[in-house]
Write a protein that binds this DNA or RNA. Structure first.
Length: 274
DNA sequence: AGCCAGGACAAGT
DNA sequence: ACTTGTCATGGC
């Protein structure tokens, strides 16, 4: 943790491999907002996070060393050496360019139930509306933290609901999938706490027992909440990347970390409107 | 105004 | 094993 300091009950992280826009608004998380001063706010578990850039540091406000080490070190994937990853992926010219455009992307390691629901909401949907649905989902069924913020609902709460109860969040045909996910997870029929210990393929099959979780959603959950960095979600943007930039398949340097490469390419494709 | 969005499912070849 | 229509909703 050479690049991480703990002072004044804040955490200070060297911003070399950490950009807030590139990390919090690159399509992996949907609950972070930025205000006119560049302060990012989001809810993780029961905590309201506030982050901003100050000089060459990313500051996480109101967090002590224990809290960071116990949970957020893992959440912000500080066990990954992004310098080394970027060096490896830069063997490919296209990836090198994508990385130069968004060198501060970090993968997040998010809560599993939240990630499953979020990417069920994402299907055949656009990011601004996904954020709205999730916001209403939390306000209606999540625990209130303060006047502005609600925790993400837990599976137990949602498992007790009927499809009609979800109508205020306006999720459309996805509502029935959310109920199915909550019921199967709460009953233990789908074991999400063990996914990290399973092979990528077995974890994928386990997730796809849920109605509304197909190949794309499963890959996102594996990548964004199960530390499966060989998972490779293919959405419409990545499909275009594969067709236009990699007609002969992904380069060798992505092997084992296809998902991380995917995240650089996803942000790149959207920025240049490929 | 109409096309499209970090897709999945069911029914049809 | 592949293709196609359908599913709600609203952002752009």
């Amino acid at each position: 943790m050479a690049d991480i300091k703990f002072e004044n009950n804040n955490v200070y992280i060297n911003a070399k491999d950490f950009d807030l826009r590139q990390t919090l608004d690159c399509g992996q998380a949907f609950r972070f907002k930025v205000d006119e001063n560049g302060v990012w706010t989001g809810v993780v578990k029961q905590k309201v996070l506030k982050l901003y850039k100050q000089d060459n540091f990313i500051v996480i406000e109101n967090m002590n060393e224990d809290e960071f080490k116990n949970y957020f070190y893992d959440y912000f994937t500080f066990f990954i050496d992004y310098q080394k990853i970027k060096e490896m992926l830069s063997a490919d010219d296209i990836l090198k360019q994508a990385i130069s455009m968004s060198p501060g992307i970090r993968l997040l390691n998010q809560e599993k139930f939240e990630t499953i629901c979020s990417f069920i909401f994402s299907q055949n949907n656009n990011i601004p509306r996904i954020k709205g649905i999730i916001e209403r989902f939390c306000e209606n069924f999540g625990e209130k933290i303060d006047e502005q913020n609600y925790a993400f609902p837990n599976a137990e709460t949602i498992a007790k609901l009927d499809v009609d109860d979800l109508s205020p969040i306006r999720a459309g045909f996805r509502a029935k999938y959310i109920i199915d996910a909550a019921k199967k997870i709460h009953s233990g029929e789908v074991d999400i706490e063990n996914l990290e210990n399973m092979s990528t393929e077995n974890a994928r099959q386990e997730l796809m027992k849920i109605k509304g979780v197909g190949p794309k959603v499963a890959e996102c959950v594996l990548l964004f909440s199960c530390k499966k960095y060989d998972a490779f979600p293919i959405d419409v943007w990545i499909k275009k990347v594969l067709e236009k930039l990699y007609p002969n398949g992904l380069p060798e340097c992505t092997k084992g970390i296809e998902g991380i490469a995917q995240q650089y390419l996803f942000d790149y494709a959207r920025q240049i409107k490929l």
